[in-house]
């Protein structure tokens, strides 16, 4: 299950989507909005998405988990729009028969979301704002798909 929504995210609901009797491990990651950046107070965040492509890339990430680790039960929920401090902006829930694959795949999904999904966040300060990670660095989303194996 994947979704991008401007409504508050619900970890219990997303976690329950991946639970099955054949799974002995469920790992849920919550990304939450931080109140500071380099000593500055962050007032709120603004998320923007290129929806069609972001949904496609989230689906690709789910397929990668299936192909690379045999993990089939993945749910990703991403928030957009105005998000206050301390709120949940990302939920990744992964279930697998055993904990090792579940922990590893959950970690990997979060990394891939940050690498290839066209969603951007802007931190708003008392005296300005900044698009996070957009400060003119080289960005190569077509690379970096190489997977490590569980156990590293």
């Amino acid at each position: 299950m994947i979704e991008i929504t401007d409504q508050p995210l619900d970890p219990a609901r997303v976690t329950n989507l991946v639970r099955r009797d054949g799974n002995g491990a469920v790992v849920t990651f919550l990304g939450t909005t931080r109140d500071h950046f380099e000593g500055k107070r962050v007032l709120r965040l603004e998320y923007e998405a290129y929806y069609d492509m972001a949904l496609k890339k989230l689906e690709e990430i789910c397929r990668e988990m299936q192909q690379e680790f045999g993990v089939e039960d993945v749910a990703i929920s991403h928030r957009t729009g105005l998000v206050d401090i301390g709120q949940i902006s990302l939920i990744v829930a992964v279930a697998a028969p055993h904990r090792k694959e579940a922990f590893y795949a959950c970690h990997k999904v979060v990394d891939r979301v940050k690498e290839i999904v066209p969603i951007w966040k802007k931190e708003v300060y008392e005296d300005g704002s900044r698009w996070v990670a957009c400060e003119d660095h080289e960005f190569s989303p077509s690379q970096g798909a190489a997977a490590e194996t569980p156990g590293h």
């Binding site: 979301v113 940050k114 999904v117 969603i119």
Partner: peptide, 24 residues
């Protein structure tokens, strides 16, 4: 989909410029 520099464009393509992403 992310495109390489040598990808040939067609008139009805949906083309977007993607700054470094920062979701999560």
């Amino acid at each position: 989909d992310y495109a390489e520099p040598d990808t040939v464009l067609n008139e009805r393509d949906e083309v977007c410029l993607i700054p470094p992403v920062s979701g999560g």
